[in-house]
Design a protein around this nucleic acid. Structure first.
Lengths: 220, 220
DNA sequence: CCAAAACTTGAATGACCATTCAAAATTTGT
DNA sequence: ACAAATTTTGAATGGTCATTCAAGTTTTGG
């Protein structure tokens, strides 16, 4: 057994038991820490200043680093934005699969999708705000566009898989469109909210929308 | 009776009967024509290049003018953006009051709001796209933020007025949130659509959502 | 036709910014 | 401890862009 004590620039950053030898882990650690710090600073700063206006220097200052270090770690501004979007997508995916594991019926799985999207850790003003910024700018950045396209396809196929077991075949596409629009719309409005968000209420309302859309009343 | 023949730079721009004398009208005309041209060019160019990346020179080129002329007519880039947003808001408001005039019951007025938002002349990819760009950037531009805030309050009060006659008091706010989120979400997704939009289908789907949300099933 | 008003723009201005780079600081492996 | 690898950044670079301005062009009013 090895006790890891990660010291960087005279500061103790982390103490934890480790079973692997230090060398390979520690070498990666600084890079990982900087990545995390810079991505977190990006979320905060883009929310504060807007995607269009934010500069490398501002993000770096928020992270307590220099603009040059962003280039060192991410290659370019676009690289940082891509990494930040990946980070958010990863968080969303993690929340989703977690909920899926619990759900047993199609409607529970639809609930799970909604619960993931409105989870406490994701449904916050800065994150909804930055999500929207990325959304708006994805068509103009090949790297963001790619991530966006892949994620979109994944979400659509999830919805379709569950809805096909819940509504008539000719209703599936309409129901998917309604659910997805609702979900996106809530995020969009949350991004412009002043106070903190009530994620529990959002989940509750979303469940009701799922109920409505999958009810027999939906027939044209 | 006077026949107006508007000639500018050797080109006949407009011939029409007029009852007012030429002087005051014609003096305003060139300004109006340039305003329209530049705003139209702004919509096209922002859709093509993105709010974050678009430059005055690009917009001017699209309009067949010089970047300096934008400053002459709108004072600044932000002034142009504000004027463009005003233009879109005016269009939306016009479509809305038109529908309202026809509607006689609360639910018909809700249909009318949806029909206005998904009218043929408004529900196009470039307009949904630019709308979303403005939406995303409004919080960072005082002048856009102001327009956005005013419009938002207007739409909310419209929804509340009709819903208060259709659903139980404790359901009003939830229903409004659902309708508005759906509406926003559809625009957001339309902005990212590849092909042309089916506005008729959007209206039809929106009516169904109105029906669902105002049905008695909505009870928690 | 003419003077005044309105319009147009090329070029200049000044500011801002992402990225690069070389040198310095820190950490790592042995 | 010390050489190699990694990390950090101040300053330089090159480019972009909104805005201004002065000098022209076109239109208007009479």
């Amino acid at each position: 057994m090895v006790i890891q004590v990660l010291v960087f620039r005279g500061e103790i950053l982390n103490i934890q038991p480790g079973w692997r030898s230090l060398d390979s882990m520690a070498r990666k650690r600084i890079r990982d820490i900087r990545n995390e710090e810079l991505i977190e600073a990006t979320i905060v700063t883009v929310h504060k200043r807007g995607y269009a206006a934010v500069t490398m220097a501002e993000i770096a200052r928020e992270a307590g680093a220099s603009a040059a270090s962003i280039s060192y770690y991410f290659g370019s501004k676009e690289g940082l934005m891509e990494a930040t979007m990946r980070h958010l997508l990863r968080k969303l995916r993690r929340a989703m699969v977690e909920g899926y594991a619990q759900a047993e019926t199609p409607i529970e799985r639809l609930y799970a999708v909604m619960d993931a999207n409105f989870a406490d850790s994701l449904f916050t003003v800065p994150q909804c705000s930055i999500w929207m910024q990325f959304w708006a700018n994805a068509p103009y950045s090949p790297r963001l566009a790619r991530l966006h396209r892949i994620n979109r396809a994944r979400v659509i196929s999830h919805f379709l898989a569950e809805l096909s077991q819940l509504v008539a075949p000719d209703q599936i596409e309409t129901a998917r469109q309604a659910l997805q629009s609702y979900m996106d719309g809530v995020w969009l409005q949350a991004a412009q909210s002043d106070g903190p968000l009530d994620s529990q209420a959002a989940r509750f309302a979303a469940h009701r929308v799922v109920d409505l859309v999958t009810s027999r009343e939906m027939v044209a």
